[in-house]
Design a protein around this nucleic acid. Structure first.
Lengths: 181, 181
DNA sequence: CCTCACATGTAATGAGTTACATGATTGG
DNA sequence: CCAATCATGTAACTCATTACATGTGAGG
């Protein structure tokens, strides 16, 4: 999938600016698909505007810079549907964290612990984001399915990580002020 | 992570040819980290050879073409360790399957079913691959941890998918003996 | 005052994929 | 004979990231 399709998908739900799209991809409702930087989002929007897949409207705001709000067109919806049908019908579980875990004997214990804790922090953060999104997702919607899937997978990862901590030779984590589940 | 680091990691376990690396990344013990094509693997090996991170040995085989077997050097191990320490300490759950699921209302039911079944097939296949790898992974090793993680996550995904089938409006899957079209 | 959040964009660069190009051998 | 598997490699191309470039307004 490319950034164009991602943006089109987001705009199919609601109009948005490039900045808002970035935020949604970074953290929000659309953070579980692919990554995208400003350097790919803005050109994608410009390109789609030229192709008539989106329209733009400049919005003046009080106390904030001018915002260019993009809306999807009928042609855009058609293009999205088309792209959707062309996407591969499988995806892969790939993890760079696992790659690092693979070499646990070859790195310093301190580093392994940092990596493990980093992944743990990520997983808990991810779960929190998902729970947050679950609030605003209506039951039976695509969003609800996505959040349910994410929650199932992330929870399983957390559980396995917690169980594995000692077997990797890592010290027990004394809970300082963390949010327990 | 780049393909160079991936290859180096694989070679840290055992010597291999470019072709063998590709197979291991496609299907085998090293299929859960990043993807890599011949077009990236061969140049990576050539590059690392020039840098002295690996050595090469040409191996004649009966009934098969000549094979170039690469082995990691001490400098290679050092470089690997270095790269490992520089990798990001988090990774992301990204899924293009979920993106498609998001638009379940906007695609034809037939397509949604194909995508769903495709993902299901992938998950079961993945689980089978992992179980297979578990046989050859010695307990307590990095491989064992990786396989355990993969198994936990993939199992959770399968369970959620099975539970969600009907709620997505998909027909119950009759155990496939009459799957011929 | 200075930094952060908001907001938009471009250009150089880099990393990888796809398609191309070749060729041996085995099995149906 | 033809397809598949084994095996190595290159070149054009795509796509996205990073760094650059600019500017406003709010709040500590």
């Amino acid at each position: 999938m490319n950034v164009r399709t991602l943006c089109l998908g987001i705009l199919a739900f609601d109009e948005a600016s490039g900045y808002e799209i970035k935020k949604a991809v970074e953290d929000g409702m659309f953070s579980h698909f692919i990554e995208a930087s400003y350097g790919s989002i803005y050109p994608a929007l410009t390109h789609m505007l030229a192709d008539g897949l989106v329209t733009v409207r400049e919005q003046l705001q009080e106390g904030k810079p001018l915002k260019k709000v993009y809306s999807i067109t009928e042609a855009g919806r058609k293009a999205l549907k088309n792209s959707l049908h062309e996407l591969p019908q499988q995806d892969k579980f790939k993890s760079e964290f696992l790659f690092q875990a693979l070499f646990r004997d070859q790195v310093e214990m301190k580093h392994l612990e940092a990596v493990f804790d980093g992944q743990m922090a990520f997983l808990y953060d991810e779960l929190a984001t998902i729970e947050e999104c679950r609030q605003s997702a209506e039951p039976g919607s695509g969003h609800a399915f996505v959040n349910g899937y994410g929650r199932a997978v992330v929870s399983a990862a957390i559980q396995y990580m917690e169980e594995s901590r000692s077997s990797l030779g890592l010290p027990e984590k004394t809970i300082s002020s963390d949010a327990a589940e």
